[in-house]
């Protein structure tokens, strides 16, 4: 059996409401907030970046798993806001949590799904015959997502992180990953060129041919391969670019509202990009009981989706971390000017 032995979530303390962002650009905040199904978004402080967020999430995961960090043999950080273009975030995290030096580490980028690609890599390495020495793998999705001031993305682009530790000891696994499947095509719906400060997107093109096609492609492929159907699952989690898309994709696939509610985090903290689906899954794991099955699908622009079929084991009830929804409550509201300062949207910063 291979599966999750621990997870950790981190969300920065600061929040800006959709209405406050809309106020600056003289748009109808109430209507936008309702349309996106997002109330506010989490904002990293001036001294936070994807590396610091990844470290905080990773430390919580290690503490939750109750393992020695030095036994982590593979560490990947998925992000589209790595602090360096060249110089890994993963080595900073490995050093900070005490996993160095006996491990392989690398940074990943696949828009919002790089963290789940890392989980798949960990599954391969942990379960592999060669190398045999990798006992645990850790994958982190962490972002301080940037939205161009005044752009539609600015209403949702948020900061947050989630870390997962993959292991193979039956007595440690809290949720078995039964299978995984991915669906990938060359679809340029969202991108950021080298040296460009903000990503660009193709507007409505990010919907049907991008998010929906890939999420559904991965979901259907996964269900076909495992011989499952939506009613076989207690929970379902999808990538959440806003609070509306995951609800719609769930409905299109035949999932009920009750199955996705626990994993919907974007309405409360915005789209945390690489952490989005991973935070939703963490929230589901907070609640899941032994034997319950979880269907999880990430989506990354560019474009692709990773699907997972997960089953909670009896170990999940032994040691629950502070629930993700409790973390959301530790917050302080900031205005647009402070947000612009924190996220260095002012030229002088």
């Amino acid at each position: 059996m291979i599966g999750i032995v621990g997870y950790g979530a981190y969300v920065p303390k600061y929040r800006i409401t959709i209405e406050e962002i809309a106020r600056v650009w003289q748009k109808d905040g109430k209507a936008i907030s309702k349309g996106l199904n997002v109330k506010e978004k989490a904002v990293g402080s001036l001294d936070e970046d994807a590396a610091t967020i990844a470290v905080e999430a990773a430390r919580k995961a290690v503490s939750h798993a109750g393992i020695e960090a030095k036994n982590i043999g593979a560490l990947y950080v998925g992000s589209e806001s790595h602090p360096y273009a060249v110089k890994p975030t993963a080595s900073i995290v490995a050093d900070a949590i005490g996993a160095s030096p006996d491990l392989t580490a690398a940074d990943l980028e696949f828009a919002c799904k790089a963290g789940t690609a890392g989980i798949q890599m960990c599954l391969g390495l942990v379960g592999s015959e060669m190398p045999k020495w990798i006992e645990y793998g850790m994958s982190i999705g962490a972002d301080t997502a940037q939205g161009r001031p005044g752009d539609a993305l600015e209403f949702t682009a948020a900061s947050g992180g989630a870390a997962y530790i993959i292991g193979k000891k039956n007595e440690e696994i809290i949720a078995e990953i039964e299978d995984t499947y991915s669906f990938t095509t060359d679809t340029p719906d969202f991108w950021r060129r080298p040296h460009a400060e903000f990503p660009r997107h193709a507007g409505r093109f990010t919907g049907e041919p991008a998010y929906f096609k890939h999420s559904i492609g991965a979901a259907k492929g996964m269900m076909e391969r495992t011989g499952t159907k939506p009613s076989d699952f207690d929970y379902a989690v999808f990538h959440q670019p806003n609070g509306k898309f995951p609800i719609r994709v769930a409905k299109m696939l035949g999932f009920e509202k009750e199955q996705i509610e626990q994993g919907l985090t974007t309405p409360h903290i915005g789209n945390t990009y690489s952490a989005s689906m991973m935070l939703g899954l963490a929230s589901v794991l907070d609640k899941a009981k032994a034997g319950e099955r979880i269907f999880a699908v990430s989506y990354g622009s560019g474009a692709g989706s990773d699907a997972f079929v997960i089953k909670a084991t009896k170990n999940i009830e032994k040691n629950r971390p502070k629930p993700v929804f409790e973390l959301f409550k530790e917050k302080e509201y900031i205005d647009y000017a402070t947000y612009a300062k924190f996220r260095k949207k002012l030229k002088s910063l």
Binding site: S45, D47, D49, T52, V55, E56, R59, K87, I92, A96
Partner: peptide, 17 residues
């Protein structure tokens, strides 16, 4: 204790955590 950026003055230089 929290893990944060201590200094990030030079946009082309290394970041101190």
């Amino acid at each position: 204790k929290v893990f944060r950026k201590i200094s990030d003055i030079d946009p082309e230089g290394p970041i101190a955590y």
